[in-house]
Structures are given as structure tokens and as C-alpha cells.
């Protein structure tokens, strides 16, 4: 079973309630909140489960505890001692960080660009949904463009001889070439009579209407 098929509202509810709980409770109650979120993540959310398998994630969670222990502990040879209060402080910080990071992760792991675009269109922000789609699709183009420009400048020795000039040239080339590609997108969208300010679907064009008339005459419709 996965949280993926359940409503985004469920994820939002979990996020709001867990964040409120983290802000309001302290001490060992934080263990309950963190434990509950950990259980939800392990049982229902594969992307968050993958995050939990990363060592770096646990280093980040454990680091406040280490900071509290190492920086506040007292060295009395041959032992290194730390007071129970400092240990409790470090544990509370770690549990709070764990709960907050998990609650945000559970919220965003259910997000996809297409879902967000649909929400934007539903609430009348069609242009913003369009811009988001453009941004998502441009990521792969950007990667290729960055690679091509970087290699070109590097092969001409730009970064070694005049590094600041080369960086400026890199940025100007990158942005101007993507702007030219963006103009092609604008032309394509204009040709399809896309209207970012309209709510709902675009009205059928003359091309649509003539296509329907031809389609009705085909034997397929009998």
C-alpha cells in the first residue's frame, strides 16, 4: 500500500499536524511524534523510505547530539563525561530535526509537476502551470546547453587564461541560447492559440472544426 494513491490532502494534514505537534511538544513526546512519522514513512511512502536508507541523512540527524556531547562534555581523564541534561538536550534537537524533515519529505514526495500544474489550472493559474511545465521540460535542454558551452570555452582555454571573462561569457551564452529556444516555444504556443489567461480549455480553432467535418464524412462513423 502506498500513500501515492491517497489524497494530497492526507499528506497536507499529516504535515500540518506533525509540524504543530513538533512546535508544541517537547521532551519525550517528541519521540512519539518522530516515531509515528517514521512508521508512516516506512510503511506507506517509498521515496521517504529511500531517504531513510542514506547514511548522510542519519549523520545530519545525529549531528546535534554529537555537537551537544562533544562541545559540552567535560574531559576528566581517563573518561569523557557528559551530563544527562546535555545528553537530553542533544536528543531533543535530533528528534525535532528528524520529525520536521520527515513531515516535509512526506508532503513533497507526493508532488509531481503534472499534479501541481493541474492544481494551478483548477484554481485559475493557467499561465503559472504553463510556466512550470516549460521549466520542467527545459531542465534537460539546459543540461545539454551547459555542457556544450562549458566544453567549448574550456577547449579554447578560457577558464585558465581569463577566468572572470570566461564565466561571464559562459553565462551570456547560456542565457541567450536558452532565450532563443524560448522564442521557438512562444511561436509554437501562439500557433496553437494557447491562451494563458483563459480558465478551462482553449476554444476549438478553425482547424479543429474542419477536421471534425471531414471526420464525420469518413466511413468509420457509420
Amino acid at each position: 500500500m502506498s500513500l501515492d494513491r491517497l489524497a494530497g490532502w492526507l499528506r497536507l494534514t499529516v504535515f500540518v499536524l506533525s509540524t504543530a505537534a513538533v512546535m508544541l511538544v517537547s521532551g519525550w513526546h517528541l519521540l512519539g511524534v518522530a516515531g509515528l512519522l517514521l512508521g508512516i514513512a516506512v510503511l506507506f511512502d517509498p521515496p521517504t523510505r529511500r531517504l531513510l536508507a542514506k547514511l548522510r541523512f542519519w549523520l545530519l540527524i545525529v549531528s546535534p547530539l554529537l555537537v551537544a556531547v562533544i562541545l559540552l562534555g567535560k574531559i576528566k581523564p581517563p573518561v569523557f563525561t557528559v551530563s544527562p541534561e546535555d545528553l537530553k538536550l542533544g536528543l531533543e534537537m535530533s528528534l525535532r530535526a528528524l520529525a520536521l524533515i520527515l513531515s516535509v519529505q512526506l508532503l513533497v514526495s507526493g508532488l509531481t509537476v503534472s499534479r501541481i500544474m493541474r492544481r494551478f489550472e483548477t484554481y485559475g493559474f493557467k499561465g503559472l502551470g504553463f510556466a512550470l511545465g516549460i521549466a520542467q521540460n527545459m531542465l534537460s535542454t539546459l543540461t545539454e546547453t551547459v555542457e556544450a558551452i562549458f566544453i567549448t570555452i574550456r577547449l579554447r582555454g578560457g577558464f585558465r587564461r581569463r577566468p572572470l571573462y570566461a564565466v561571464g561569457l559562459f553565462l551570456i551564452s547560456l542565457i541567450s541560447s536558452t532565450l532563443l529556444q524560448a522564442d521557438q516555444v512562444v511561436n509554437a504556443a501562439s500557433a496553437r492559440a494557447f491562451d494563458p489567461s483563459s480558465r478551462g480549455r482553449n476554444p476549438p480553432t478553425a482547424a479543429h472544426e474542419s477536421g471534425r467535418r471531414v471526420g464525420r464524412r469518413l466511413p468509420l462513423h457509420r
Partner: peptide
Amino acid sequence: KQATQIRMWVYIGLFGSLWGAV
């Protein structure tokens, strides 16, 4: 006017993509 609006949204998507990619 429509082309101007479309251009505005495409450029917003472009620069958002640049910042997001970084």
C-alpha cells in the same frame, strides 16, 4: 497581446528553470 503574455510566462519558466537547476 496573447504572444506577449505567452512570452512572459515562457521567460518566467526559463529563469525559474535556471535557478531551480542550480
